[in-house]
Design a binder for these strands. Structure first.
Lengths: 143, 143
DNA sequence: CATAAAAAGGATAAAAATATCTTTTAATCT
DNA sequence: AGATTAAAAGATATTTTTATCCTTTTTATG
């Protein structure tokens, strides 16, 4: 449903949400040990998100990745779509051909409701929603 | 969430549910064109299910795969567990360490509810439930 | 008993996902 | 300007998943 890559990406972004801003950028090196994702791999994912304007980055000394206030308004779904592509989430849970959310097959009806709900959650959850909750920051870690 | 292999397996079993019984066994050859799964690959999956006693088979002329009345009482979850292993479905949706359904992380709470529901559907749906519905057989195909 | 039909099993191949390594580009700081 | 730092980009490697092929074993039937 979600690839590892997407999960990694979300974790990375969550770290950024908690620990970065325009004046405090963080290097992949600071992130990867905390979120338990291989450094180079995480770098790739963040680069991809950056290219798509989901997160921000600058090169060079004092550079790094960070989230602007605007960035924080992006949804989890946007992250997933950048990393996994548009299709993965929308295709039939059961892999049935010619079957999607609009025209669900019999198996789809069984489980499809849950899935669309899952997507709706991703769609309606902004990055800032994750952090602005009542929970303390600690609750997020270890990721 | 579900591997392709699991989906293939479920489709194959569904075909068996609709088209086989102890007195009418079917060959992989009859199934694979209908459910759009590569012949040899489907054979492997069905063999695996057969070894685990989820479906039945006999060799030789007039042999093939089929579902006994007992077989039909197996759940979709059992199929998935044979094919994907126990772990895949139970691990955290977000891939967070030390997080499972009993001790959900923050991200888990967001989406975890949907997932456990998904699992509960798989768990509570027997093979015969799929076929005994009001829907006509045609509705299941093309798979 | 011979033969053919069909699953079972083993070994290999191809593709996709995951991960690492190396080089390039851009920013900052002497 | 030159040195250094860090992301960006590109190339390569590894692992897992998916798929195929080929041989062996079992079994019904003539």
């Amino acid at each position: 449903m979600l690839s590892n890559s997407s999960k990694y990406a979300i974790k990375g972004v969550l770290y950024l949400a908690l620990n970065s801003n325009r004046d405090h950028k963080v290097m992949v090196r600071d992130i990867y040990t905390v979120v338990h994702v291989p450094e180079a791999y995480l770098a790739k994912l963040l680069q991809e998100l950056s290219r798509h304007g989901i997160i921000s980055s600058t090169r060079g000394p004092k550079g790094g990745f960070y989230l602007s206030e605007e960035d924080r308004k992006h949804t989890l779904l946007e992250i997933v779509q950048v990393i996994d592509g548009e299709n993965r989430l929308n295709s039939c849970v059961m892999g049935i051909r010619n079957c999607d959310m609009d025209n669900p097959c019999v198996l789809h009806k069984l489980v499809g409701g849950n899935k669309s709900k899952f997507i709706r959650v991703l769609e309606s959850t902004k990055i800032l929603d994750l952090v602005d909750g009542k929970q303390g920051i600690e609750e997020f870690f270890p990721l």
